[in-house]
Nucleic acid binder design. Structure first.
Length: 200
DNA sequence: CTTTGGATCGTCT
DNA sequence: GACGATCCAAAGG
């Protein structure tokens, strides 16, 4: 537990992340992502299952890139895509199950000046963390942080629970950029929040 | 406001 | 050698 935590709340317990991605993902809504002065409330997530989920990076087994997914819950899994973007996931499930929750959007609550510096393209506050790659830019998350621990209190980024519960009835839909339309509605969001990414 | 095309490279086949 | 768990600027209504 970092004494310098600038937000009232406690670290998320690793045990709370040990369930399936479909359970953990909506549970993570309204939790806080904290890096120094930068604070965001998670408002949109997607679940990625292990070897049984064709859309998951772990579908074809362990590789160099997805190795972190196979680690214990609470790790930060960061991957590079489209030749220029980073995306951040919370590893969940038991060690070896390779499940993860993609952090798609957050409501910026603190450290806005630092976020803006890291995202010159953002014109409004709602452009800072709306989208998985934007969120990573705002928080300065790159592959260098892949494998770091979100719940030990010793990592650069932390998952914090400030007591705000997840929404009783979160928005539910299909995952973005994934071909399996109806099968797995594994995207959840905080209804009405302006920081939720829009879909085309 | 919406739509469209281009950027850009690590990873796995 | 192909393809992304994406974003942005530009152009059009």
């Amino acid at each position: 537990m970092p004494a310098e935590l600038e937000v009232p709340g406690r670290l998320v317990a690793r045990a709370d992340l040990a369930g399936d991605a479909q359970e953990v993902a909506p549970w993570l809504l309204n939790k806080l992502l904290v890096r120094g002065s930068r604070v965001g409330r998670i408002v949109e997530v997607e679940a990625y299952g292990g070897p049984l989920d064709p859309a998951s990076h772990a579908y074809r087994g362990r590789t160099r890139r997805n190795a972190t997914m196979f680690g214990p819950p609470g790790l930060l899994y960061v991957y590079f895509t489209y030749g220029m973007h980073w995306c951040a996931n919370v590893v969940c499930g038991r060690e070896g199950e390779a499940r993860a929750v993609l952090l798609r959007a957050a409501a910026p609550l603190g450290g806005l000046a630092v976020m803006r510096r890291a995202r010159r393209a953002a014109r409004r506050d709602t452009d800072l963390c709306r989208g998985p790659a934007r969120l990573c830019q705002a928080f300065g998350i790159t592959g260098r942080l892949d494998g770091s621990d979100l719940v030990s209190g010793r990592g650069p980024v932390a998952l914090v629970d400030d007591g705000t519960p997840p929404p009783d009835e979160p928005g539910v839909g299909t995952r973005v950029g994934v071909a399996d339309a109806k099968e797995r509605p594994w995207r959840w969001w905080v209804p009405g929040d302006p920081n939720v990414s829009r879909i085309r």
